[in-house]
């Protein structure tokens, strides 16, 4: 369900509510650890809905350093690709820098792979303790800046699981992002 929508040049930004691993989108972002293992949470949802091929592709790649992004298929999921980013974890130093780096890397992977539609969750703001206000601000800013330039992306979605995640996204998009 779309809640907030905004046009930036020829692209669209939408804020929706739901489970990012279960929405109808071409590619979505997953916050992975450096060992490139899916783990639990959204990771187990990817395994359950997508099958074992996603982890097999990740194993072949082997690692994803902090601030980097790697791309795999999405197995049997509704999406076609997953871009795995390694954002800052817990309260490690330079959260904002690492976050910006991971988002930039994710957008670069999307452009390289001619992806038209990409969905971001708030990166690391639950279990990994990244500040939610900081993350949504940086995410909305970085995506907005990217879409103002040359891009093949038609649409970027921000996907909030619950009200806690939804509200700061809504505020930052409303502020002009």
């Amino acid at each position: 369900m779309t809640m907030v929508e905004k046009k930036i040049n020829n692209s669209k930004v939408r804020l929706v509510r739901g489970d990012i691993t279960d929405i109808d989108v071409e590619a979505f972002i997953y916050d992975i650890t450096a060992d490139a293992k899916l783990g639990t949470g959204y990771g187990s949802a990817i395994m359950a809905r997508g099958g074992k091929t996603v982890q097999e592709e990740l194993d072949a790649i082997g690692t994803c350093p902090t601030g980097e992004a790697i791309i795999t298929g999405a197995g049997k999921m509704k999406a076609k690709h997953i871009i795995h980013v390694n954002g800052p974890k817990f309260h490690e130093p330079d959260q904002e820098g690492k976050l910006r780096s991971a988002i930039t890397a994710a957008l670069k992977r999307a452009e390289e792979n001619q992806i038209k539609q990409l969905a971001f969750p708030p990166i690391g703001t639950g279990f990994y303790q990244v500040d939610l206000q900081l993350c949504t601000r940086v995410l909305v800013d970085a995506v907005s800046e990217h879409l103002k330039g040359t891009t093949g992306l038609d649409e970027v979605l921000f996907v909030a699981l619950d009200t806690r995640e939804f509200k700061p996204f809504e505020a930052h998009i409303g502020q002009g992002g």
Binding site: D22, T40, Y42, A45, K89, H91, F127, L161, D162
Partner: peptide, 27 residues
Amino acid sequence: RVGVMPEGVWAVSKDSWEIGNQMGVLM
């Protein structure tokens, strides 16, 4: 809060945050 916890606590907490229940039961 700084990521020091038993593996099981890690797994269950991540399920709670991202799936909305502590055993990762999908909708």
